[in-house]
Amino acid sequence: MSRVKAIGIDVGSTTAKIVAVDENGEMIWRYIEPTDPRIEDQVDRFLEKLKEELSISDEELKKIPIVATGYGRKLVHQAKKKLTEITCHAKGVYKSLGHGGTLVDIGGQDSKVIVISNDGKVVDFTMNDKCAAGTGRFLENTAMRMKVPLDKMGELALSAPEEVKISSVCTVFAESEIISMIAHGVAVEPILKGLHRGLISRIVAMIRSVGLTPPLMLSGGVVKNPAVRKMLEEATGQKVILPEYPQFMGAYGAALIALESTKSEN
């Protein structure tokens, strides 16, 4: 009999993740890859991989509850329940860290600030407005424009002794601003630092709009970028706490909710 008692799947705009948990809600398996436009096929592949690596039979898999989250959640037909990232992230982070606080999750499409109570409930949340300047996509796009590898971006930004202020907060205009700066001979590092500053100030504005309940926590793919963390700490004066698997918090939370549903059914 497999140890896997529940599965969570998070289909984000940039990456898709899957997490399996045991009966105590411990994360025993996880997997991530870039989101495939054919989401149904990708989820099938994920489940195949899970079966193979943890030697689970088809029969067994059918009995394991699945909860889906993320932008593509509605296309995960294998899921018995579909919930938003807000609920799932809060759940996952709370279980991982064991306390509430203010969670910042910077995703590709959406950034969110979630206030979690001491008993793990969502008490408040806010998301970036229509423009993409407060999201991971903003950094990605501009890194591409500047031909800087994504994983080097944070380091380069931090290495800059000074920064330039990027005037426009909209992604499209920010790009054209950057092009003209490069044309004027401005070095890459200060521009990168300015870009990060732009992103961080958007995030800080969101935090202020709901009010900061410490501690401050960070999740999402963007945590791999050291500049984001450091600059967020500087701007808020709060130490930023990371869960062990920051990218998997949505999927993990989804798995935990799936697990709870089996318990409540029993």
């Binding site: 938003t84 990232e85 807000i86 998301m127």
Partner: peptide, 10 residues
């Protein structure tokens, strides 16, 4: 849609 969904979940 996702904001309303999260609100209803709350």
């Amino acid at each position: 849609a996702s904001r309303i969904a999260s609100f209803l979940e709350m």
